[in-house]
């Protein structure tokens, strides 16, 4: 992002306008109607409060959304992130329980995530399956694999290191928030300080032209899917750490939807091309605020998906060129009459 200058950052600002506006609107709503929403207090050198909660829980979605952003920017999509998160969490917990050291367990979870992502990438680039179809396979089978690892049980473990990932704090902020910041920073540096970002955007914007310019489109896609798998693995570790257990059946449930939604909210088009990592993180936080607001308005966690779905629909419609075309036609017809 920093290598951009002038009007380019202006245009990325324009893309961020919608999520920013929605964010401010939700915050304003909560300021008016949710007492204590903005209260933050310090206990034992750690911040507590609703906003901190949102940051904490939004981090998991945000991390996956960063990986998903890269995949969507290449013109693809990854439906398997929830299942991959479940696999990573199950593997880590299983290794801890069977006596491995926490670093080994954590590394194994992450490596499994990368492998799962690379598998998706191979199906997309080598077999040329459509991304939805290719990632559907792991979406179906992944949860089964996770349950295979946990033997169908909920594995509870006792490991301060692993527990710290989801529950610890650093510099007053919950550890997941710090991890989100690190993932965002690393991805942003890799994307913008090397040619990865440029290549990803080229492949997503015009694959044929990118190929004619010599862009290694398959390698770029493979990298994007592998990164997405890594992010999903990390999210799986956070979730498994947060509840101090691996629940293969429910871990990462509907994570794919939240992540895709965050990316779309953040201004990255589902058709690929230009992407915004910051936007996706904002989108993730927006989703979390929306969820929290619904809870605080006494909407049950089960019903909450419905209003979220309406938000998705509205955002998609606002992003749809077809709708804009129709509106433009309407205006011009009226002007003509």
């Amino acid at each position: 992002m920093s290598t951009r200058s002038g009007s380019s950052s202006a245009s990325s600002l324009r893309r961020l306008a919608l999520p920013m506006a929605a964010l401010l609107l939700l915050l304003l709503f909560n300021f008016l109607f949710t007492p204590g929403f903005f209260a933050v207090e310090v206990r034992d050198g750690r911040l507590y409060g609703t906003l901190i909660d949102i940051l904490n829980h939004g981090s998991k979605i945000g991390i996956v959304a960063i990986g998903m952003t890269l995949v969507i920017a290449t013109g693809g999509v990854d439906l398997s992130v929830g299942a991959v998160a479940a696999i990573a969490g199950a593997a880590a917990a299983h290794l801890i329980v069977s006596g491995s050291s926490p670093p080994v367990a954590i590394a194994s979870g992450l490596i499994l995530g990368v492998l799962a992502g690379a598998w998706n990438g191979i199906l997309v680039t080598m077999l040329r399956l459509q991304p939805i179809v290719a990632t559907l396979i792991l979406m179906v089978a992944g949860r089964g694999i996770a349950q295979l690892i946990t033997n169908g049980l909920i594995i509870t473990y006792d490991s301060p290191t692993l527990t710290f990932i989801g529950n610890g704090s650093l510099g007053g902020l919950p550890f997941p928030v710090m991890m989100l910041a690190v993932v965002l920073a690393i991805t942003a540096i890799l994307a913008r300080r090397t040619a990865i970002g440029l290549f990803v955007e080229c492949v997503g914007d015009n694959a044929a032209a990118a190929r004619m310019s010599g862009v290694p489109d398959r390698a770029v896609k493979l990298l994007a899917y592998a990164s997405c798998g890594l992010c999903a693995g990390l999210a799986g570790l956070i979730e498994c750490s947060y509840i101090r257990a691996a629940d293969a059946n429910n871990a990462g449930m509907l994570l794919e939807l939240d992540a895709i939604l965050a990316v779309v909210l953040g201004g990255t088009a589902l058709t690929g091309g230009r992407f915004s990592l910051i936007g996706s993180v904002l989108g993730a936080m927006l989703i979390q605020i929306l969820t929290k607001t619904l809870y605080m308005q006494n909407v049950s966690a089960d019903i909450a998906p419905a209003p979220k779905a309406l938000v998705v629909l509205v955002v998609c419609l606002l992003h749809s060129p077809a709708l804009r075309q129709r509106l433009a036609n309407l205006v011009s017809r009226r002007a003509g009459a």
Binding site: V77, L79, I132, L254, L257, I260, V264, L270, P305, A306, K308, A309, L310, V312, L313, C316, L317, S320, P321, A322, L323
Partner: peptide, 15 residues
């Protein structure tokens, strides 16, 4: 609106 079916029906799934 030429929207991707998977996205619309994913939203429909939540709704």
């Amino acid at each position: 609106f030429r929207l991707p079916p998977f996205l619309i029906t994913l939203a429909g799934m939540f709704l």
